[in-house]
Amino acid sequence: MSEFAPAPTPTRTTRRDAFPPNWPFRIGLLLLALYVVYASSILDLTWPRFLLGLEHGQRFLGRMFPPNVAPDKLKLLYDGMLESLQIAILASVAGTLISLPLGFASARNLSPAPLAWAARLIIVICRTFHPVIVAILFVKAVGFGALAGVLALTVASVGFISKLIGESIEEMSMKPVEALRATGASFLSVVVMAVMPQVLPRFIGFIAYELDSNLRNSALVGIVGGGGIGATLFTAFQRFDYDFVLTIVLTVIVLVMIGEIISGAMRKLFQ
C-alpha cells in the first residue's frame, strides 16, 4: 500500500518511488486483455482462420495488381464517377434547401420552443440512421438507381448540415439581432441583416463539406443499389474483377483528395 502513502519515508526512498506503479491502470489493461480474449472467442476469431485468410489475401492481392485500365473498364469507371458526382450535387442542393429552414427552426435563440424541439427530433432521426440503411429503404421504396442514392444522401445531409446550421445560429451574438428588432425590422429582415452576415461564412464551409462527404458517401450507397460508382464497385467485387476494384478505389481516393482541395478554395472565396 506504500504507493498510496502521502510521502515515502526518506530512509526508504528508492528510484521506483518517484513513479509509483499505477495499479488502476494495470488492472484496466488486464481487464482489456481479458475482454479481447473473451470477445474473440465469441466472434469465433481463431488463429488458423486468420492464417488461412492471409493465404487468401496473398492471392487476392496478386489478382489486384496491376490495376485494370482497359478502355471498356475506364468507360465504366467514367460513367460511374459521373453519376456519383451528379448524385452528390443533387443531394447537396436538396439537402441544403431542406437544412436551411430546418436548421433555423432548430435554433433555440430564434425559434419558439415547440418548433425547435420538433425540428431537433427530425434532425436526430435523420442523423441516427446510417446512410446505407436509409439507402436500402429508398431502394426498396423507389427502386434501384440514382434516385434512391440521391434521396438517401439528402437525408444524411439534412441530419448533418441542419445540426451544424442550428448550432452556429445558437452560437452567434444576439446583440445585433436585438438592435435590429429595436428598429422595427421584420423577422425576415433581421435574419437577412443580422443573422446571415454572422453565420453565412460558416454555412459556405458546411456546404463545401457536404458536397465533399456526399461524393465520398455516394460510393457507399451504390453498394446497396443507390447507383453511381458504388454500384460499379460492387459489381466488380461480385465478378471477382479485383484489378478493376483497385482502379476504382484509387480513383475514389484521388477524387476525394481533389474534392478536399476544391472545398478549401471555395471556403477561401467566401472567407
Binding site: S173, K175, P176, A179, A182, T183, A185, M193, A194, Q198
Partner: peptide, 26 residues
C-alpha cells in the same frame, strides 16, 4: 423609437454604411 446600446450592437461583419442603413429596415 431609436435605440443606442452599451455595446453598440452593430453587425460586425457588415460595413459601416450597411449598419446605418439597418435603421431603415422597418
Amino acid at each position: 423609437i431609436g435605440m443606442v446600446f452599451q455595446e453598440y450592437n452593430l453587425v460586425e461583419r457588415l460595413t459601416v454604411i450597411e449598419n446605418v442603413l439597418c435603421g431603415r429596415l422597418g
